[in-house]
Amino acid sequence: MKNKSLLIFGLLLIALLVNACGTPAAAPAAQKQIKIAVIMPSATNDMAFSQSMWSALQSVQKDMGGESALQIAYTDNLFNVPDAAAAIRDYASKGFDIVIAHGSQYGSSVQDIAPDFPNTTFAWGTDVNTFGMKNVYAYTAAAEQGGYVNGVLAAKLTKSKIIGVTGPVEVGDAKTYIDGFVQGVASVDPTIKVNKTWTGSFSDVALMTAAAKTHIQAGADILTGSSQSVVGSIGAAKDAGNVLWFGTQADQASLAPNLVVASQVYDWTAMLKDMIAKRQAGTLGGTVYTLTLSNGGLKIAYNPGYNLPADVKAAGDAAIKGIQDGSITVNP
């Protein structure tokens, strides 16, 4: 008796499993599965640039109905050109529909390879150059815009009138974010001092921590910065206990739930969905996407754990609105 019920149970289980496996297999018949491959310069969990793309892909996959609708392949920690070229060519020849080269150093490779695969969509960033090819997208983020908003908020919140910026190397969106930030601060109160440090490395967490502590020693009560090594600065702010943090690239609130005021978040989902939709409609590329506050690609994620005074938030929202309607221009 017992054996029999076990047997039935087992059979049921098998039936269920077969069924579970069978359902998705049937689905693609209705709509063709899209295959995306992405190549990234750092790890998918870097709390910064690579993670922003990786999370966007995950969320697009979820919205589309899982693996059956969107297959994602990835190669991470890839920063040299021959390897990237090999990866891009390989994914393209394996029949991936969209190959995303998520790093500005991959441009030459995309330029070389894209003509050989006219039916594959290539997307690369951050840059603004599609090389005039019909199957290449370029994308970039106007990091200075969120930087400006963060700067406005920071200027309203600082009591010591000293703000510290911990940067890696003064290039790319690390530079444009911080330039925007400085403009935002100056728009509120030009007398506020913004001290800047650069550690010369995108990964040196220990030096970043020391830099942040130096800023705090010099009187800064608000810090911000860019790159995956800023987790060190956030830690220093946390140690000090009363120093606030503004993030960029990804939402960094989880690292210091009481001290992160807001983060500028790169949200690539709308762009990815647009690429997929365009591809299904027959367009393979040719345009440049720029994430901005207006098109929703850039978002200011206020941290619910930090009690932001209403008037400060209003100033931040006003800055967002001003950038959106063009009454405020931020120079990168």
């Binding site: 790890a43 920690n77 990964s203 040196d204 967490v205 220990a206 090594s229 987790v231 830690g235």
Partner: peptide, 18 residues
């Protein structure tokens, strides 16, 4: 000492060549 006393976190290539 890095991951539990000085920076209190771990990340890829935390030591950065130290």
């Amino acid at each position: 000492s890095l991951s539990t006393a000085l920076v209190d976190l771990f990340q890829d290539n935390l030591t950065a060549g130290q």
